[in-house]
C-alpha cells in the first residue's frame, strides 16, 4: 500500500474544516462525508488520520468494510485500541468483569447483594474459571478477550450499558487532556450494534455536551440521517471530482508520471476526475512502463 502523503491531492475544504473542528474554532463536532464510490472518501479519512497523528491527537478508525463483525464489544475494543489502551483501564476491567462464559443471576433473598452487584466490582458469576483484571505492563490491564455471553436480551443490554458507561468515563478523562477523534469509514456497511451505539450513545453524548473535545468523522456512500436538532453540530460535505490541475498534481507529483499535457488531458478526460479511476489509470500506465514483475504467481 502506498502512503497517503504520497497520494493525496485536493480536499482542502474538507481538511481545513476538519482542522478547525480539531482546534475548536467551530461549534461543529461531527463531519459527515457522503459521496458515491470512487470519489476518495477513504483517502480523505486516511489523510485526516495522518493529520491527527501529525498533531499528536489520539484517534481511532473503524472501517465497516472490514470483515470483522463489529458488534458492540468489538467496536469499543477497536476504539480503545486506537486511542491507546493505557487510558482505558477502567473500561478493560469492566470488559473482563462482564465477558464471561455464562452470566446467571443468583437467586434468593440472601443473594440480593449478588443481584445488586451484578454489574459492580464484586459480582459473582457462576461457572467462571477466569481470573479477571490481570495487570500487565505496569498500569495497563490486559483484556481477556472474552465475549458477552448472556442468555437474556435485557441482561445483555444492561452489560452493554455498563461497558458503554465505563468507556465514556475513560473517554471523558482522556478528552480533559485535549481533543480526540473518531473516524467511521464505509458507514453504508455499518452493523446493527455499531449503529445503535453510535446513534444511541456516542453522538447523543456529544450533542448533549456530556463529552467535549471529541470530533467524529463519518464517511460513506450513506451517512446517518440526523434531523435538524443536530444542525449546530454537523458539517455535511460531499466530495467533488478532481479538477485538471489536481489530476496533474496527482499524476506527476504523486505518482511520478511524465508531465505530458496530452497524456494528462487524456487521463483527466478518461477518469472524468474520479480519484479511484484516475488511480487505476495511473496504475495502468505505470504497469505498462514496468518490467512486468519478476515471477508468475502460479
Amino acid at each position: 500500500m502506498q502512503s497517503i502523503d504520497k497520494l493525496f491531492v485536493n480536499r482542502e475544504k474538507q481538511t481545513a474544516g476538519f482542522i478547525k473542528m480539531l482546534q475548536g474554532q467551530t461549534p461543529k463536532r461531527i463531519m459527515l462525508i457522503e459521496a458515491s464510490g470512487g470519489l476518495g472518501k477513504s483517502w480523505t479519512v486516511e489523510f485526516m488520520r495522518v493529520e491527527c497523528q501529525r498533531r499528536g491527537i489520539p484517534n481511532t478508525e473503524i472501517d465497516f468494510a472490514d470483515s470483522i463483525v463489529f458488534d458492540f464489544l468489538a467496536l469499543l475494543r477497536r476504539a480503545r485500541d486506537g486511542f491507546g489502551i493505557a487510558a482505558f483501564n477502567l473500561f478493560t476491567q469492566a470488559i473482563n468483569e462482564v465477558t464471561q462464559p455464562t452470566v446467571r443471576i443468583e437467586t434468593g433473598a440472601a443473594n440480593t447483594n449478588a443481584i445488586n452487584n451484578l454489574l459492580g466490582q464484586s459480582n459473582t458469576f457462576s461457572g467462571s474459571n477466569v481470573n479477571v483484571g490481570e495487570v500487565i505492563a505496569g498500569n495497563v490491564i490486559k483484556d481477556n478477550s472474552f465475549v458477552i455471553n448472556a442468555d437474556n436480551a435485557v441482561v445483555r443490554q444492561a452489560l452493554q450499558d455498563r461497558l458503554s458507561g465505563a468507556f465514556f468515563a475513560c473517554l471523558a478523562s482522556l478528552t480533559s487532556q485535549g481533543p480526540l477523534c473518531f473516524f467511521f469509514d464505509t458507514y453504508d456497511k455499518v452493523t446493527v450494534e455499531a449503529e445503535a451505539w453510535l446513534m444511541g450513545h456516542l453522538l447523543p453524548q456529544i450533542r448533549d455536551g456530556l463529552i467535549t473535545n471529541v470530533v467524529v468523522v463519518i464517511a460513506g456512500r450513506s451517512v446517518p440521517k440526523l434531523d435538524n436538532q443536530w444542525d449546530h453540530l454537523i458539517a455535511r460535505t460531499g466530495l467533488d471530482l478532481l479538477s485538471e490541475p489536481h489530476v496533474k498534481e496527482y499524476l506527476v507529483q504523486r505518482r511520478g508520471l511524465n508531465d505530458d499535457p496530452n497524456v494528462i488531458k487524456a487521463l483527466f478526460q478518461g477518469s472524468t476526475g474520479q480519484p479511484q479511476l484516475l488511480a487505476m489509470l495511473a496504475d495502468n500506465i505505470l504497469r505498462s512502463q514496468a518490467s512486468g514483475g519478476d515471477d508468475d504467481w502460479l
Binding site: 470512487g38 478526460q269 478518461g270 477518469s271 472524468t272 474520479q274 479511484q276 479511476l277 487505476m280 489509470l281 496504475d283 495502468n284 504497469r287 505498462s288 512486468g292 514483475g293 515471477d295 508468475d296 504467481w297 502460479l298
Partner: peptide
C-alpha cells in the same frame, strides 16, 4: 472516450492484460 464504468473496466482489463498470465489469474 470511455464512460466512467467502462474506463474502470478498461483499466482493470488492461492492468490484468499487462501482467503475466499467472499474476493476472
Amino acid at each position: 472516450m470511455p464512460t466512467v464504468s467502462n474506463a474502470l473496466q478498461l483499466s482493470i482489463t488492461q492492468i490484468l492484460a499487462s501482467m503475466k498470465p499467472g499474476q493476472a489469474e
